[in-house]
Write a protein that binds this DNA or RNA. Structure first.
Lengths: 146, 146
DNA sequence: ATAATTTCTCTAGCAACTAGAGGTTCAAGA
DNA sequence: TCTTGAACCTCTAGTTGCTAGAGAAATTAT
């Protein structure tokens, strides 16, 4: 049996995150020691590794919740699993397309900057009016937010 | 002078979002009518359009706050403006690289799925262990979160 | 004049954690 | 055995950029 700290180390998931996953029901409530500290079996480690890997691949927690539910029922057909993965792929692809548009817009904007004063800065000017843009980037381009 | 609803329409920014921008100090507090409703000058419209466009290009609000501050001082050199834009470009490029890695990983995973039952689903298996991955995607790949 | 729409403020919620306060339990050294 | 220090516990609140809702007041249209 592992303490939460050991589990955290081996799975590469921070301690508060593990507790958070338990809180939202993504991990089952762990057993406790006599002093009320969480104890984990190796299986819990596998489940957590699964979650971490899926998170690394960008799956939202709700999708992961579904995937975990499915992996607990090995006799079902895996079409639904496939569907979730395909949805994630589509989301990633869409995101790449939008980011490429952003990238070229930013590059164009920066290239025009002559390095003078703010008064005639192309970057400010371009941001001020969409009319300077070549691509027709819409609302949904954004969300780059680190 | 425009009501908040008209401003919202012309700038393409939702009404609660405008109030939110005022709340966090990104827009100055608007003047009010006798009945305490917000009234906006066309200049406020320009400022809002600037914000919207920068958001569309993925700039975080804090960066936009800085950009607005700079555009209010037209005599300063524009190097700092340029810096923010370049930082944003770098962020976007980094994001694209990571997403491409995700994309190929997801594609590989999906391609292996033979469509059987969950018990021998490649997607589940691949998620279960990082060992199946070709690319060495790390923590920082994620954050696709729509 | 009345009805419908818009606006007001305020609070709470979303994802997916992270940080901190204030208190307990565990493992190791003296 | 005692003591110290690390790791653990619960709970609340903060992050980003909004969005949704309640309940009330103001404006606009008929």
């Amino acid at each position: 049996m592992l303490s939460i700290g050991k589990l955290s180390e081996t799975a590469g998931v921070k301690v508060p995150t593990i507790r958070y996953y338990e809180q939202i029901g993504l991990l089952p409530a762990a057993g406790r020691s006599l002093g009320n500290q969480r104890l984990y079996s190796p299986e819990a480690g596998h489940r957590l590794a699964f979650i971490r890997h899926a998170r690394d691949l960008g799956f939202p927690l709700e999708a992961i919740r579904d995937l975990l539910g499915m992996s607990d029922q090995p006799d079902q057909p895996c079409a639904a699993v496939d569907g979730i993965a395909r949805a994630q792929l589509l989301a990633v692809e869409g995101r790449i397309v939008r980011l490429m548009a952003l990238k070229s817009e930013l590059e164009r904007m920066i290239a025009q900057c002559a390095g003078g004063s703010v008064a005639d800065c192309r970057v400010i000017e371009c941001l001020g009016s969409h009319a300077h843009c070549t691509t027709d980037h819409g609302r949904e381009l954004a969300e780059v937010s680190e």
